[in-house]
Design a protein around this nucleic acid. Sequence first.
DNA 1: CGGAGTCTTGAGGGCACTCAAAATCTGTGG
DNA 2: CCACAGATTTTGAGTGCCCTCAAGACTCCG
Lengths: 269, 269
Amino acid sequence: MTNTKSDHPCNGCAFYQGSVWQPANAAGLSALKRGFARKDLAAEQALYAQDDENRGVFCVSSGLIAVRTHHSDGTSTLIKLAYPGDIIGYRSFLAGARHKTEARALVPSRVCIVAHRDVSHVIGANPTVLRRIAGRCVTEIDSNHARIIATSVKPNRDRLRDLLLELMERHGHRDGDRLSMHLPLSRTDLADLIGVRPETMSRLFRQLKDDGTLTVSGREIGMAVTAPSRPPEAGLLPRRHSQSRDTRRSSRVATAVRDHGHPAIPTDR
Amino acid sequence: MTNTKSDHPCNGCAFYQGSVWQPANAAGLSALKRGFARKDLAAEQALYAQDDENRGVFCVSSGLIAVRTHHSDGTSTLIKLAYPGDIIGYRSFLAGARHKTEARALVPSRVCIVAHRDVSHVIGANPTVLRRIAGRCVTEIDSNHARIIATSVKPNRDRLRDLLLELMERHGHRDGDRLSMHLPLSRTDLADLIGVRPETMSRLFRQLKDDGTLTVSGREIGMAVTAPSRPPEAGLLPRRHSQSRDTRRSSRVATAVRDHGHPAIPTDR
DNA sequence: CGGAGTCTTGAGGGCACTCAAAATCTGTGG
DNA sequence: CCACAGATTTTGAGTGCCCTCAAGACTCCG
């Protein structure tokens, strides 16, 4: 059982270096090869459904996968967008529980699959793999925190602008001094991602159109390359919802300073 | 270097069985003991500050720790409450980056510390430790998702009620047919946790008081033991913000059904 | 050309935010 | 024990954002 890099099923993948499977070797590699499969998904096709048993860990190879949670009232929340190089299904795998989310392709996509039992073997054979998966967890936690914070600190208009800028980075192409892209998501999905109703999404688009931030025609979006997030008015700091003056900035900070004379972590071991 | 369970620094801790360090043995144990320390925190004292270097992984032994993020405008968001048995600081450890949050005791607390370099050794010596830490990551991800969903699906009043019920489980004591507790958090902190302004928090409290859900006197909260979350009016399903009839439940579900004839994961490997 | 689905627009209302000020609580010193 | 300063909490007034309901416009297809 010799193994060289060229034996690795992820070799040749553009994301090989950063792949969570990249560290696999020796015994790990054979398990990895055993459990490995590829799968092509049509647009709108589901990779797994909410409440499904976990069948393995998936790595997005191309395309775009939406990870959603459906609620009992028929609405849904778009939890995240999985791009090539991202892995999904690991939450359910690590928890040893059913999927709490649904994964569905937004555009024709390809994913690589490592079957459930073989993931365990690969991890058992090579701890570094788990280290990398943990790294992905941390990334996920970070982005969740960012989203929680954004929700409570920024108005929806700003959040939509930020989202469109992110999408532009991935899907946009430069055209003179303008960026443009074909949106990979429906308005409804955008609304789910921001956490507003579709009607509100429509109105947010109009606001951004009106203040000149972007041009819209169906799913074709354009924005000036230089003006990332400046509504023509005055420049304002990341204030909390609408503008306001600099009252506050006192209590918690002051508390931190007085702090009963305890410096943060004196490390008195 | 013999090691028995009684050698384990966490032995004797009420959370020993579930501890992320519990699997440590042999080489891992010696590293664990080397890096181990305890620390008592006064109320309001910080364990680590935002942007601090990671000094290790902390396990809450007693008390209550608030994990916050401070924003540039002086506001802050309370990310989570860490109870005894919870570990904190692992995000920063796994990412190999500075803390993105601040950890501060809400009440007099005790934490156990495993110093940074020794965490690496323990993990290196015993992969199961990392498996458990990954499990904590998953728990964190789940609770983040729950919060993201709650934010976009439930009105603030309901979220406050849910939060108070959770707190009641941890801090409440039964007194006849009433539950009561002393809130471990200020109104401001509660507001940060729900994602509203303190004034709004005050008004939410009044609503819950008015509709009979709870009694309030300063930080003393009381609620009937039998009525977990029922405003005296009609029973309503988990509808999205305020009541409404059962329009919708069509688009996405319908989409899932037609689905171009692709069943979810045909597993055509 | 007629749906079906998606997106937009309009009307009306409730909730939460901001600003401002009063009220209450807490700890300290006389 | 009371007075007082500082901090926290509550209340009031006004406004804007976002939601719901409802209907119209647009698009894509068979």
